[in-house]
Computed example of a mutant assay.
Amino acid sequence: MTDKSVPTLYEWLGGIEALQRLTTRFYEHVKADPVLESVFAHMGGDHPAHVAAFLAEVLGGPDAYSRQHGGHAHMIRQHLHRHLEQAQRRRWVELLLQTADELAMPDDPEFRSALVGYLEWGSRLAVINSQPGATADADAPMPKWGWGEVKGPYTG
């Protein structure tokens, strides 16, 4: 049973507007980053909004990403055959957290611990799914990240 008096991570960070500001600014930084620019060189203009919707759903917000884009399986397919490396993954996480600081997003330890936990988990999964032979499970459930509890495709 969920305690309705405890906000979701999505609510705590300010909802979709805050996530859209975060991803928009983050991908502006990515375009100028020597480690990441080549990974996202062909990124469409709607990419930041898609990532914001994905993060919103993972962090307890509306299920717009699943309804409009196909959920976690779709996100996995976006990483297939991209051959991502650990250095790129680490820089992605580092730059996203720097951007969160730049935008004065919540920096309390509980929230940041949960956010970093998801970013580490999700980015490591992206690297795994980008390697040769990886496939996307069409039934992969959308991960749900909360205050110290996780429900996702590999957590039960």
Rank of each mutant, 00 (worst) to 15 (best):
H47N: 08
F40R: 01
G44D: 03
A73M: 07
G133H: 10
N129S: 07
A104I: 01
D108H: 11
A104R: 11
F40I: 05
G148C: 07
Q68F: 06
S38C: 03
M43T: 10
A136M: 07
L125F: 06
L125T: 10
L36W: 06
P109H: 11
S123R: 01
K144E: 01
R82F: 10
H29T: 02
L97E: 02
W92L: 00
V30K: 00
W147P: 00
A56C: 15
S123H: 04
A56P: 02
R89A: 14
A134W: 14
G117W: 04
W145A: 01
A73E: 14
V35I: 14
G61T: 01
L36R: 01
H83W: 12
H50I: 09
D63C: 15
P153H: 13
Q86D: 11
D33T: 04
L125P: 01
L96V: 08
H47F: 15
A41S: 11
D46Y: 09
R67A: 15
M142W: 07
S130M: 11
A138H: 03
G44C: 03
Q68C: 06
V51R: 12
A56Y: 12
H74W: 06
P106W: 04
L59E: 00
V30W: 05
S123M: 04
R77C: 08
L103Q: 08
G133W: 13
G152R: 02
D108Y: 11
K31E: 12
G60V: 12
E110V: 15
H42S: 03
L96Y: 09
W147C: 01
E57T: 13
A104W: 03
E110W: 08
L80S: 00
E102K: 05
Q78L: 12
R90V: 01
I76V: 14
W145Q: 00
L95C: 03
E94D: 00
R124V: 02
E57C: 10
Q78W: 02
G71I: 04
R124T: 08
A140S: 15
Y118P: 00
V58R: 01
P62C: 14
V116A: 07
A138M: 05
A134F: 11
W147G: 00
Q88W: 06
A138Q: 10
H72P: 09
H72E: 14
H83I: 04
V35D: 05
G146C: 03
A114P: 11
A134E: 13
Q88V: 02
Q86S: 12
H81P: 00
L96M: 15
H81R: 03
Q98V: 05
Q68V: 10
E85N: 08
Q98G: 07
V58T: 04
H69C: 05
A64W: 13
D108A: 10
W147Y: 13
D101C: 03
E149S: 09
M75D: 02
I76M: 06
W121H: 06
Y154A: 08
Y154I: 01
A32K: 11
H74P: 00
E85M: 10
G71D: 09
D101E: 06
E120Y: 10
A41K: 15
P143R: 04
R89K: 12
E85K: 14
T99I: 11
T135N: 04
S123N: 02
P143N: 05
R90F: 06
H81L: 10
E37H: 11
E57R: 15
A87I: 04
S123I: 02
R77Q: 07
V150W: 05
E85G: 09
L97A: 08
P153S: 05
A73I: 09
M43R: 08
P109W: 12
R89C: 03
